[in-house]
Design a protein around this nucleic acid. Structure first.
Length: 323
DNA sequence: AGTCTAACTATCCATGGATG
DNA sequence: CATCCATGGATAGTTAGACT
């Protein structure tokens, strides 16, 4: 959107004579779009990552080729591939984005004093005393590193990391995923809960058999069988037959629905201890919990990390290494 | 299945006239 | 002279349907 109508200098794309320098007329948004296409080698997937439709990406590539004056992508039946020029543009664009990223760190930052900004995407209710201790210690050691934390759904978090819009993610990533590096940091155990209005809340003795026919409150992700699928497996293995009474993709809302008596539901045990203590929730059997759904530190494997990000990652992983 | 094309809509922004 | 507002051109987006 940055350079509309400014090509109205009488020279069409690729016309050669009397036009402004490439750097002045190039629409950098098109480069960003192209980088995603080159990574995905699939226009539809690139469109998904960029939150636009497939034709929008197709047209953007055409415009970029028009501005550059040469072909970047060739079609082979239903597939696309990069031309030699396309490979070169991708290589150069990667360097440009790394350089632009480094602008976020003020020039001349003292070598011994790490300066910069870290944008962290996190799923809600990450509960870990060690994580809190790390954040406190990190701030004490690097007071000039600014930290921004944005809470979002697990799936959105992965999409945002692939788009390179944040430094790191703190979230679920059960299986290796394209473009995402992951390191386990916080093991998390899910257990069954019910709320105060639920009939089981005040029942003296509750066994697992009783639970099998209760209505369920679940994560939307659980229904889709993605990041929380160990819970789906558990549900199948134990033959839960209750109907789905309510669902949400947001942990807080799942907790609210359970608290309001919609049914029994799975929640991360440590994150909701407080609700149990104040009597809003009751922890149900089995005592050993249901499934482990671990929290990972996540980042884009193709992102060139800035100094503050390298320090953050290394110190976080060190803080979580060992028992 | 994946991509392209055509037709249409939405948005941005330069321009110019009206107004205080 | 500054500000506001209407207008119109250019561009980027969308959907629907055709093409490879």
């Amino acid at each position: 959107m940055s350079d509309r109508r400014h090509d109205a200098d009488g020279s069409g794309p690729g016309s050669g004579h009397g036009r402004r320098a490439l750097a002045a007329r190039l629409d950098w948004n098109l480069i960003r779009t192209y980088v995603v296409v080159a990574q995905e080698l699939n226009i539809s997937r690139a469109a998904e990552r960029l939150f636009v439709t497939q034709p929008a990406v197709s047209q953007a590539i055409k415009r970029l080729q028009g501005q550059l004056g040469y072909t970047l992508i060739r079609r082979r039946g239903p597939r696309i591939s990069l031309t030699a020029a396309g490979e070169e543009v991708y290589r150069i664009a990667g360097g440009v984005f790394a350089d632009v990223s480094s602008l976020e760190m003020p020039a001349g930052g003292a070598a011994e004093q790490i300066v910069g900004r870290i944008k962290l995407l996190s799923v809600s209710r990450v509960h870990s005393a060690r994580y809190d201790r790390f954040l406190a210690e990190f701030h004490r050691r690097h007071p000039r590193v600014e930290l921004e934390i944005e809470v979002m759904r697990g799936h959105d978090l992965l999409v945002a990391l692939r788009q390179n819009t944040a430094s790191f993610g703190i979230g679920l990533c059960r299986v290796p995923t394209r473009l995402i590096e992951r390191r386990l940091i916080i093991p998390q155990r899910y257990a069954l809960f019910c709320g105060r209005p639920h009939s089981l809340y005040s029942q003296a003795q509750v066994d697992v058999e009783t639970l099998l026919h209760e209505d369920l409150v679940t994560f939307t992700g659980d229904q889709l069988g993605d990041t929380l699928s160990p819970l789906t497996l558990f549900r199948e293995n134990h033959g839960f037959q209750g109907r789905l009474a309510a669902s949400s993709s947001n942990l807080e809302e799942v907790c609210r629905l359970i608290r309001c008596g919609y049914g029994i539901g799975f929640l991360p045990e440590d994150a909701f201890r407080r609700e149990v203590e104040v009597g809003d929730l009751r922890r149900l059997p089995p005592a050993e919990g249901l499934a482990d759904v671990d929290i990972h530190l996540l980042w884009n494997s193709e992102r060139p990390l800035r100094p503050a990000e390298v320090v953050f990652r290394d110190e976080l992983l060190a803080a979580f290494s060992g028992a």
